[in-house]
Write a protein that binds this DNA or RNA. Structure first.
Lengths: 229, 229
DNA sequence: CGTTCGTTTGAAAATATTCAAGAATCGTGG
DNA sequence: CCACGATTCTTGAATATTTTCAAACGAACG
């Protein structure tokens, strides 16, 4: 799905605002190298498709994130895929002025945003490289709980924006393996899932105890770790 | 080994120039968040140590690279380890002026350098996440050949700066597995190794054919792919 | 209400890891 | 320059983990 099929209408800063439907894709390799994409709302993946049906989601992007074409790995099939209906603004780096603000009224600090994303990327490398399947699953759930969850009486609750396939491609597992891991977590009572795409973390502290990266995830997100009992 | 044990002497830009011996480490978690490290010469790894003896090298840094503390994943034991005697300059982000030049006299473009590093990081995520052990090994050798190799009559030749353990921690394999993979490559005649730490790529095109990321590696490095025969 | 797609699950296979022993290499000091 | 000890690397066999394949199940959609 080429980027020009995207619904575009003029935006404020000489950029283009794109309204993406779920699953819609922006092919990065046909964007200009100095193009920046500001995620205004929604949730997207940065993903690469390799020969032989292989796909790797290198990063999940949330509102407030900024990704440049130049910062994406230069593989042929690299792109952004909307996991939820999302609003993305595309601007040229040169057009980004220092007094520019996001939709949320916060001033854009490009260097800080870029560094934050790089740190997330590094953390993800660690997760994929050195965590067991179970730890990876806990890491993913904790990440989503932090970025998407709202506290409810029954625990942190959120809509899971990624399909099982997407989650597997993110954590570098295969979908069957991931499904097994989810089932086990559900069986343990730590997480409940009212529907396929909704999760309820019943015991956040226990989930945090399952991954060595809990503290780092909190630090990146600007929250503190739940005290273990 | 704390950072202050490092041999430091005043540098040009209000920063500190550090001369690192092989294996010497800069503990990033005790650097200021706005510290930048410019690699002037040598070769370092950005690595994280996890509980249970686990270690992940998230990135190999070469001369010309710049890494900021803020862009490193915020895990406790994160740091830079010199693989070769290296010269690193530490400056505060605020002190980096636009007209600053590296030792090689090239002007520093922080945004471009940062983007390049992010792209490398993403590519590494793909390698770790979706390549087989054999493909990973080919990817690593190609990367090193590009960054460190010099053409000789017998093929691209270079000194391998990482130990087997380091390479394994970079490619998210275990050292035994990696050793087996190296042995196989050697047996195939594709690579020869006059000593443990020196490699000779006898057939670069064949090596490139072994990894789906050959083109991307070349693109990042600014070279073109060897034509297949 | 049937079809389709995504998910779950079991059994077999492939792949990577662990453990342990042995070999090669490196550094040090004689 | 050689010998020794320490380290790093290699390799086989057993084990663990993950993947593959296939079938069944379930939810979503027309």
């Amino acid at each position: 799905m080429p980027a020009d099929e995207v619904v575009g209408r003029p935006a404020l800063n000489g950029g283009v605002r794109l309204a993406l439907r779920r699953r819609q894709r922006i092919a990065l390799h046909q964007a200009a190298p100095d193009h920046l994409f500001l995620i205004e709302s929604g949730c997207l993946t940065l993903d690469a498709v390799l020969p032989q049906e292989r796909r790797q989601v290198t990063m999940i992007l949330y509102a407030g994130d900024i990704i440049s074409r130049a910062a994406a790995p230069p593989v042929g099939q690299i792109g952004l895929t909307a996991m939820l209906p999302s609003m993305v603004q595309r601007v040229r780096a040169a057009d980004l002025t220092l007094d520019m603000h996001t939709a949320a009224r916060a001033p854009i600090d490009l260097a800080a945003t870029t560094a934050r994303l790089a740190a997330r990327s590094g953390l993800h490398t660690i997760a994929i490289g050195r965590l067991t399947g179970e730890e990876r699953m806990a890491t993913l759930l904790l990440e989503m709980a932090l970025y998407l969850g709202r506290p409810t009486p029954g625990g942190q609750s959120f809509e899971i924006p990624l399909s099982r396939n997407d989650m597997a491609d993110y954590m570098a597992l295969n979908p069957d393996t991931l499904s097994r891991l989810v089932s086990r977590l559900r069986a343990s009572g730590l997480v409940s899932m009212p529907s396929r795409s909704r999760a309820n973390i019943r015991d956040l502290a226990a989930l945090e105890a399952m991954t060595p990266l809990a503290k780092a995830l909190h630090e990146l997100h600007g929250t503190s770790v739940t005290q273990p009992v």
